[in-house]
């Protein structure tokens, strides 16, 4: 248990102020949060409450103003960055999933996924093998050589998930990953995220407004006016007996 905790995400008293002086905005006013490896938690809150700001801090693209963030075994921030190469941190330890898939339009599906291991220094062959496995697990292997523009929205989002998983990061940050999808596909994305969280021991935070998927989380953080409060979710099954078939095969 202790070991698991150290490998997840721990956020303590995180603050973020945009700008300075009279126009300053306190977007985060002391956020506390903890996500264990293998867990998917929801992060919900009204517009302007600071959800995206939190993801940006955690994703090391903006610098918090104060607080502490622990990722895996490392403190990455405690008043200042504790990691020199934030780019490598993002590449190796954080997977990003956005509202739109944002695949690279000039790379085919396999290479969109394989690009991340390649950037991390793995060989082309190894990277593509890894991409192939992930695409298999996400049930889009049959589209492996298609270009992103030739995929359906749901397929694109699954490729984006494969990309987020490509470097086996301990953390995945998803900002409204189901917004453009219908309820069946939205639920299937959550199913996949749950399966992947377990399979790869990943801690996943899903920011969402989406009423369809909120009931599926076991734990939910509500953020309001820059502060979080933890609530228990319904943890409802995503119906359809486990779409994450590949997970069972692997196990």
């Amino acid at each position: 248990m202790a070991e698991r905790q150290t490998r997840g995400i721990i956020i303590e008293g995180l603050r973020k102020r945009y700008g300075a002086g009279e126009t300053a905005v306190d977007a985060l006013k002391g956020v506390d949060m903890a996500v264990s490896p293998g867990e998917v938690v929801g992060l919900i809150g009204p517009s302007g409450s600071g959800k995206t700001t939190l993801l940006k801090c955690l994703g090391a693209v903006i610098e918090p103003t104060a607080g502490r963030m622990t990722l895996g075994n490392d403190v990455i921030y405690d008043g200042k960055w504790r990691i020199k190469d934030l780019r490598a941190l993002r590449r190796d330890r954080i997977g990003f999933i956005f509202q739109a898939p944002y695949l690279i339009p000039f790379l085919n599906v396999t290479d969109n996924v394989a690009l991340l291991p390649m950037l991390a220094g793995h060989s082309d062959g190894e990277s593509r093998t890894r991409a192939g496995e992930l695409l298999e697990a996400l049930d889009v292997a049959h589209r492996a050589s298609a270009m992103p523009s030739q995929l359906s929205g749901g397929e694109q989002q699954r490729v984006a998930i494969a990309r987020a998983l490509a470097n086996r990061p301990p953390v995945i940050l998803a900002d409204e990953p189901t917004a453009p999808l219908d309820s069946e596909r939205a639920l299937s994305v959550i199913t996949i995220l749950n399966a992947m969280a377990k399979q790869y021991e990943t801690a996943i935070i899903v920011v969402t407004h989406d009423e369809k998927i909120i009931p599926t989380f076991r734990r939910i953080y509500r953020i309001r006016d820059g502060r979080t409060e933890e609530t228990a979710g319904e943890g409802r099954s995503t119906e359809k007996p486990e779409t994450g078939k590949p997970e069972e095969e692997r196990a």
Binding site: V61, R87, A88, R90, Y102, I104, L116, L119, R163
Partner: peptide
């Protein structure tokens, strides 16, 4: 621009 932002986010070096 969007692709470049994504590339940077996922850790592509400026040099690349």
């Amino acid at each position: 621009i969007r692709e470049i932002a994504v590339l940077k986010l996922i850790g592509t070096k400026n040099r690349t």
